[in-house]
Design a protein around this nucleic acid. Structure first.
Lengths: 204, 204
DNA sequence: GAAGCTATTATACGCTTGAATAATAGCGAC
DNA sequence: GTCGCTATTATTCAAGCGTATAATAGCTTC
């Protein structure tokens, strides 16, 4: 009997590979089509291994969701420079790969659709949303202060909610049907809209 | 052998019931949990009947998607009154039941997540999005004209894209985690934001 | 009220699913 | 080298899936 040769990977690495394979499958075949076997094939291992690393498929999917949310918010957090530059970048990053990608929005939607079903996913979503919005709120606060138009936390909160909504909405449509928009149109609309919302130009 | 008694329903009615049951199951159990059997139970019939009305489960799901998109856009279209009232209502309706409901956003997300997988769903989504956005664009055009600030189609297009994004984004978060917002806060933020975006008050 | 049509039920089939178990091969320690 | 640990493979299992088919019960027509 010819048994396949294989490579014994370090735990962290293999877990990461499995999660990445899970996300690939969900985005390509949908949550329904992301079966343990498909995921294993994608990761280049056999199906049994999944259960060696995760208690269940559901647990693996939940961890995969965490990874998605993290990747969507981390890109936006690590921006350097003065407040104006950071605010600008924070918005622009959502319309640039890898965030602006049909794979990302497919994954996001797949998980969103389960929020009502699975309280674990609901909690992960909530944390991710608040992290993103609070970062934005802080950015706005600093930006407005630097522009000599300091605003109350409450005012910044409302602005953050609106801008977050705007960016999310444009991001979704851009990813789903990018061909409905001209090159760079979405980021241009987003930028102009944010300026209109806060009543200030962003350029520094 | 005791066979269940049943009611012979008119074709249209039964189809409608099956589609509604499909949507109920998708929103409650997710696409994965919306099995033919569950759907049949929800509709109060047996599983076999599904295939009497639809060529396949997939076809039924696609029709169900059409129904969702239609319900999300129809509510917004049928608004009467002067341009300002109609614009106001068009936006407000998205933050009022039945559009503003966790069931709606679950369904929307479930289908969005399949857009990449299934070209049929992609086309349905595209039509729905454009219908919504074009209606909004027309509304904006009339509103601006009525306010004595007529705008070009291009300008209205950009405004429609931005407002559509804003409304969509706020709608999603409001439906998913309504408790993160105060009563009426979202519609208030939405209204204020739209006014900022077009640079005019909406009240008539 | 009997006949005929078909919407509906009931049952069965082949496949795929997530999971459990047993066998084995890679690899570090000594 | 070879021993021992365990990551990995291979195989199996019961449950649930979408679908196919045959029997039947509710209407309609006359």
């Amino acid at each position: 009997m010819n048994r396949r040769t294989f490579h014994r990977a370090p735990e962290g690495e293999r877990r990461q590979e499995l999660i990445e394979a899970t996300l690939d499958c969900i985005s390509e075949f949908g949550l329904k089509g992301a079966t343990v076997r498909q995921i294993a094939i994608r990761a280049g291992v056999t199906a049994g291994l999944v259960r060696h690393y995760f208690d269940s498929k559901d647990q693996m999917v939940a961890e995969a969701y965490r990874a998605v949310i993290a990747s969507l918010t981390e890109k936006a957090k690590n921006v350097e420079g003065d407040p104006a530059t950071r605010l600008k970048e924070f918005i622009a990053v959502n319309f640039t790969e890898p965030v602006a990608d049909s794979r990302s929005v497919s994954l996001w939607a797949a998980f969103i659709s389960q929020v009502r079903v699975d309280p674990v996913l609901a909690e992960i979503h909530r944390e991710g949303y608040l992290a993103f919005r609070n970062t934005l709120q802080e950015l706005l606060s600093e930006f407005l202060a630097a522009k000599g138009r300091p605003a109350s936390a409450e005012e910044c909160r409302r602005h953050a909610i609106a801008i977050n909504g705007l960016v999310d909405g444009l991001w979704v449509e851009g990813c789903l049907a990018g061909d409905l928009f001209r090159d760079g149109e979405l980021v241009s609309i987003a930028m102009a809209s944010v300026e209109a919302l806060i009543g200030l130009p962003i350029e520094n």
